[in-house]
Amino acid sequence: MTDTSEEHQPEVAAPAEPPTMYGARRADVYGQIVLHVTREQYVPVIKQLLDDGHEMCIDLTAVDYLAFPTRTLPDGIVAERFEIIVNLLSMGARRRVRLRVQVPGDDPVVPTLFDLYPGTEAFEREVYDMFGITFTDHPDLTRILMPEDWEGYPLRKDYEVGEIPVQFTSPNPGHADRMEPRP
């Protein structure tokens, strides 16, 4: 799960009519199609994409934009704390589509994609584990990477890296607790 936060995406110059695709706000970034969908549009738009031949869900992940609420987004899209990012691939059209969903930090809930793409099951568990975003109707929403009794969601920006200061003991022979190989 790559963290693509802090990416400043130069948007194309806004045309008079904002471009849309399946009723969702479309932006072309670095030659890739990006759709900004609301949580209500999320499943219907993906359903349409699936029916249109985007048969593979390559990735589903999330980003915590806690420290970057001023990022560039198309007009009319309100920045929220989390974003769910879905990467779809159409092998027939050789095209990739990326969806970005704004998810508020105080209500991190989105519907599952399990019924459309069974492969997202593990991705969603991972997002739940790392970001604490809940997926409604997911068949088995448990932690996947961390132990079940882990506290906190490690990839949230307000979660500490967990560095502990390096405390090397002396590698010198004087080190009291060492044993030398027999000479």
Partner: peptide, 9 residues
Amino acid sequence: SGGMFNNYA
């Protein structure tokens, strides 16, 4: 020593 991965995991 944890190497380059000095983190929570």
